[in-house]
Design a protein around this nucleic acid. Structure first.
Lengths: 230, 230
DNA sequence: GCAAAAGTGTTAGGGGTACACCCATGG
DNA sequence: CCATGGGTGTACCCCTAACACTTTTGC
């Protein structure tokens, strides 16, 4: 392990973001349409290069705020993994630290100066993305699905106050499976720290039906017992 | 997201390795004693810079082979996460992709040209490591412990043919807890693809007692049901 | 009244835990 | 024959899946 300053090869270091949201019963991911070569006109994940004095975490939070308008404290941001294959960018050596972000109720995305267009696209995405972003997005989706099982992450898809029906819809949307409502309710309430009841009882879901009780995230990171996929 | 070649800051990209093994009922990690400043004389994780044409995975496999003498196909190597805080190396900007490696029965490590000494050190390590390697090592240990629960990773600590007693010792050593032997046996054998029986019945553990049946890794990556920590 | 959504109750089965017990071997 | 480690049996408990049922609202 040599630290000679002239012995290493210079690399560009970037972050790529897989930003998910749940809206109208559909899982969506934030994509930008590339305005420049290579892959001009194709969809890609939002991202950008690290600035001299910032960590990858800082860069990811900055990009997320720039592209979505969401403040960093209002959403979940987590490192996924790093992609470093030599040929993944045709022009130069780019090592990319990928992040997964979960946002509750997003405003319309802003197109950056370099992106022709930014949009929330339904999952799964029909066409293939630029660079190795198909693989990154698939890894991110798998990670999110797995983390719903043993962490309280699903609340990151919900607004600050939500109903158990909305929380269940997050699980069903991400996993793509239906869950038994009575059992889901019992499991969530039996898991300490997952959710906490708040007062008031307005109707939140469809126009009809009994008004649902409201909850907020309980602050627990790990779920005991876990909420396993069927 | 600008791809202008002159718009980015050059970084050095390195890999750091947290290499674990189980030997004589103790969990050990491979450390090198630094021969150069900064942190000369302190213990650190093995690692090194990426070469121009190799991915981080390639670099990690190469470093692992160099430092341990173990061929890459004989052990488990997995990306952990990337550490990119601006001040983590006092001399320049180094972004490090950390890997976790598991080796079954290691030969004596080789001291590299830049390392004064390389050794297997008992976990937990008594003194603090160079750079941010304490945090990397703690993250790696937590990841290994968690992965034993829901993957067949524990077999990566064992030789190609092993007994259930040896496999149980891996769990007990990494988790630091005792397990009920009859129940462990049943759970392992009830999990499809975890282990597969092989013929022959030599004694493998201590000098006394009934000879144990031999098994090899079954090739399953995920464990259904998982083997949860007590 | 009827549909829709929330909430409660009940039961059967699987898996985990905590043991007791038997088998095979070396000294 | 005894200590040591491998292997089997079993009873209890908790969690879970599955499904029936009641409650509260809008139309």
């Amino acid at each position: 392990m040599s630290y000679d300053k002239h012995a290493f090869e210079p690399f560009a270091v970037a972050v790529d973001l897989a930003v998910f949201t749940v809206r109208d019963g559909a899982l969506r991911v934030l994509l930008i349409r590339r305005g420049e070569e290579p892959h001009a006109g194709r969809w890609a994940l939002p991202g950008g290069f690290l600035r001299p004095a910032e960590s990858a975490e800082d860069a990811a939070a900055r990009e997320l705020a720039e592209k979505t308008g969401v403040p960093p404290e209002g959403c979940h941001l987590e490192q996924l993994r790093t992609y470093s294959a030599p040929g993944r960018d045709p022009r130069m050596r780019v090592v990319s630290v990928a992040y997964t972000a979960l946002v509750p109720d997003p405003p319309e995305p802003r197109a950056g100066t370099d992106a022709a267009e930014a949009r929330w696209v339904d999952w799964p995405v029909g066409e293939s993305l630029a660079f190795d972003h198909d693989a990154i997005l698939a890894d991110a989706h798998e990670r999110v699905g797995a983390k719903l099982e043993y962490t309280g992450l699903a609340t990151a898809f919900c607004p600050p106050v939500f109903t158990l029906g909305e929380l269940q819809a997050v699980y069903e949307t991400v996993w793509g499976t239906a869950l038994d409502r009575p059992n889901f309710r019992r499991k969530v309430l039996a898991t300490p720290g997952f959710v906490a009841a708040v007062g008031g009882e307005p109707r939140r879901t469809g126009g009809r039906g009994k008004p649902a009780a409201l909850y907020r995230a309980g602050g627990a990171v790990a779920l005991h017992p876990p909420l396993l996929r069927p």
